[in-house]
């Protein structure tokens, strides 16, 4: 069986992930397991208390694998706004400002994945005033997910209504693509 992440190396780790009651089978190679944040080193406990410090230890172990290459890169990651370095972030476990998220973005996903049960993308509220056209964009995404679900459950009449809403919304925002071929 090949690794589901890199599709190159053979999967050597097989386990069942339970996230909020949903079971998923995971088959990955050791390299991806570490990179994607699926596993901790055996000497690290996986409890809520040392979760954060665990995350950051994990990153130092990655350094060894890259034979110092990653080390240089890490030194260069300094937030232009608050001057926090990635090393500092790792030891404190807190961001110094909003810009840090951008600065450290290339290294955040494994950490977020661990803390948030595999998730890396926000799916909730958008600020009312600042949000601007993100609101329509999100509405569109929600409709599409609903449509998909309705089609899967063969509720075609409902699905047609949702598709109409999608098209109306797209027309409203001047999107030329009308989604006829769904």
């Amino acid at each position: 069986m090949e690794c589901q992440e890199c599709h190159q190396r053979p999967a050597t780790l097989h386990f069942t992930q339970v996230i909020n009651g949903n079971k998923t089978e995971v088959h990955v190679c050791e390299v991806c397991a570490k990179e994607k944040g699926y596993m901790t080193y055996p000497e690290e406990g996986y409890s809520l208390h040392n979760l954060l410090s665990g995350l950051f230890n994990f990153d130092t172990t990655q350094l060894k694998n890259h034979q110092g290459q990653a080390f240089k890169q890490e030194e260069e990651l300094t937030c232009p706004k608050c001057k926090m370095t990635f090393t500092e972030f790792k030891s404190v476990g807190k961001f110094g400002c909003a810009t840090c998220y951008e600065t450290f973005s290339s290294r955040l996903d494994p950490i977020l994945r661990r803390v948030h049960a595999g998730n890396t993308k926000h799916a909730g509220k958008i600020p009312k005033r600042q949000g601007g056209d993100l609101h329509t964009k999100k509405q569109l995404e929600d409709y599409k997910a609903e449509l998909q679900h309705l089609i899967e459950t063969e509720a075609f009449e409902e699905a047609a209504k949702v598709r109409d809403s999608i098209n109306a919304l797209k027309k409203q925002t001047g999107d030329p693509e009308t989604g006829e071929n769904s």
Partner: peptide, 8 residues
């Protein structure tokens, strides 16, 4: 516990 990836 989780705050990312799901709506409120």
């Amino acid at each position: 516990q989780i705050t990312l990836g799901k709506s409120e």
